[in-house]
């Protein structure tokens, strides 16, 4: 679905964010990009989305350029618009007829558990609900590739777990390809099929860990085992 090859990025202030970063995400795969804070995870994700140009390296889409959905760390909603209008933004920008767009967005909001909140303004919603609107907005564009930048980092654990389960369900139902940036070992061990561990800055891939099946819950032995593997890889990277 997407291949990043030898990506390098240096910011104007001289900080070298990424150096020789390469990885592939296959169709319908759920991949986590994990690393210590400041290692360039978000930069890599922005480059994958085409929001940022790399200084060197290539981005390929072997199956053709996919429709991309992006979820930021913050809900990034328009405070002046209700949930429906917010989630409709990608469709409005594509000039989709209002009626069709509203049907599609109402469905997306219902899928993230926000039926009945279509006319609520962001300030009337909780942090978790705002993030749900943000996910509905990404889904409304019917993406093939969903990029998420630590979307649950600012939420409490109960909300975070609920949203994680919802994300898994949406990924399965829609056959999405997901690239999920996180700094949480437990989150990545439960959600993803594969975890890419990044080195500290300048970031590149230090370990590519395929996780075994059988991780049906956060406390399943396979999930705990996956956590141990990820933790080991991360420790090795940090020590190097």
């Amino acid at each position: 679905m997407i291949r990043l090859d030898a990506i390098a990025k240096r910011f104007p202030n001289g900080v070298e964010a990424l150096h020789d970063l390469s990885f592939t995400v296959a169709r319908k795969e759920f991949v986590s990009l994990l690393g210590p804070s400041g290692c360039g995870k978000s930069t890599a994700l922005r480059i994958a989305a085409g929001l940022l140009k790399p200084d060197a390296g290539r981005i390929d889409y072997p199956d053709g350029k996919p429709e991309i959905g992006f979820v930021f760390q913050e809900p990034t909603l328009m405070p002046w618009a209700d949930a429906l209008t917010n989630a409709r933004l990608p469709l409005d920008l594509k000039h989709m007829p209002r009626g069709e767009a509203e049907t599609r967005v109402a469905e997306a909001l219902a899928r993230v558990g926000l039926r009945g909140f279509e006319r609520a303004y962001p300030r009337e919603l909780s942090g978790g609900m705002k993030m749900r609107v943000s996910i509905a907005r990404a889904l409304a564009a019917r993406p093939q590739l969903l990029l998420l930048d630590e979307p649950f980092a600012a939420l409490d654990e109960i909300t975070r777990n609920g949203l994680g389960d919802d994300l898994l369900r949406l990924w399965r139902e829609d056959g999405l390809t997901v690239l999920f940036v996180t700094h949480s070992i437990s989150e990545s061990s439960y959600l993803s099929q594969r975890v890419l561990v990044m080195t500290p800055r300048p970031g590149r891939i230090a370990a590519d860990i395929a996780l075994p099946p059988g991780r049906d819950s956060r406390l399943a032995p396979a999930t705990i085992e996956a956590q141990r593997k990820i933790d080991d890889a991360l420790n090795k990277t940090m020590a190097a």
């Binding site: 989305a49 929001l51 992006f70 930021f72 913050e74 990034t76 328009m78 990608p90 920008l93 564009a141």
Partner: peptide
């Protein structure tokens, strides 16, 4: 204006 919102616009071809 929220720079992420502007990015979102760019992402969706605004």
């Amino acid at each position: 204006v929220d720079s992420n919102l502007m990015d979102l616009g760019r992402l969706y071809g605004a």
